[in-house]
């Protein structure tokens, strides 16, 4: 079943149009990856889905309903969760306060569901339980990433939007993050993932959407992607092809 659909969405800032008609759909329970060069419109696509940059034309459908005109807050209340770019946790609030804010719409609907939701998040991320009274800003990069993901999960969303989670993380923290996202994936929550780091992204997603200048130029399951396609659409050359290629072959290996 299709959970999220974009039909010919255009969007931009001021006089600049960044998205020139994005069309894509995300199946329930799957992980969709959005890849592209700087300025291709990856982050704006994410913001058009989340509502912080509203679509100028076209349609955004969530669970079959048109949400194109809804505010970001309303979309969250309907079951969208965010792991924003730069892991924007609230640095001067404690871990628990961050989680309480994450469950804002859940607590408004039914306060009784908060306790069990908190417990289940703590079960999945024991490190957060240990540090529940710590200020979020004083945790390591990997732990903040966990908190950002947990903050989105605790509201029990149907779709999580993850925007460039690996940026600025060291390789070891990236591995930690990958495990966290794997937990989300295993729990069956649908995810849209935007990544600059293609090797990292390809290791997680089921379907890849390749963007160029605000248009989806190629959509394929990861198992059908090859180096040449990536090179054509993303301009990956010799310096980095090794890492991406190995990530790709690792993925294909695991599929088989």
């Amino acid at each position: 079943m299709t959970l999220l659909e974009l039909h010919d969405v255009t969007a931009g800032f001021g006089a600049v149009t960044v998205l020139h008609g994005i069309t894509m759909s995300v199946a329930e329970g799957s992980i969709a990856g959005v890849f592209g060069l700087n300025g291709a419109g990856k982050s704006v696509t994410m913001k058009a889905i989340g509502g912080t940059v509203p679509a100028r034309s076209g349609q955004v459908l969530f669970e079959g309903e048109d949400i194109t005109r809804l505010s970001p807050e309303k979309r969250v209340a309907r079951g969208m969760g965010h792991v924003p770019q730069g892991r924007q946790v609230f640095p001067q609030l404690t871990v628990e306060e961050n989680l309480r804010l994450g469950a804002y719409t859940l607590r408004r609907k039914d306060k009784g569901r908060y306790g069990p939701a908190l417990d289940s998040v703590f079960d999945r991320f024991p490190v957060l339980k240990q540090r529940r009274q710590q200020l979020a800003g004083t945790m390591s990069g990997g732990q903040q990433a966990s908190l950002a993901v947990a903050r989105a999960l605790i509201n029990q969303p149907r779709l999580i939007l993850v925007d460039e989670p690996s940026a600025g993380l060291s390789p070891v923290a990236q591995l930690e993050l990958r495990e966290v996202l794997q937990v989300v994936k295993d729990s069956g929550v649908t995810m849209v993932l935007v990544e600059q780091n293609i090797a990292f992204g390809l290791s997680l997603v089921d379907t890849a959407h390749l963007l160029q200048t605000g248009v989806v130029v190629h959509t394929a399951p990861v198992s059908e992607l090859d180096d040449d396609t990536l090179a054509t659409h993303l301009g990956i050359g010799k310096v980095l092809a090794g890492a991406t290629g190995s990530a790709l072959s690792a993925r294909k290996g695991s599929k088989r």
Partner: peptide
């Protein structure tokens, strides 16, 4: 961290 936020092609 000059390559932070750069696409692979720009990093090259």
């Amino acid at each position: 961290e000059p390559s932070a936020g750069m696409s692979p092609a720009a990093a090259e």
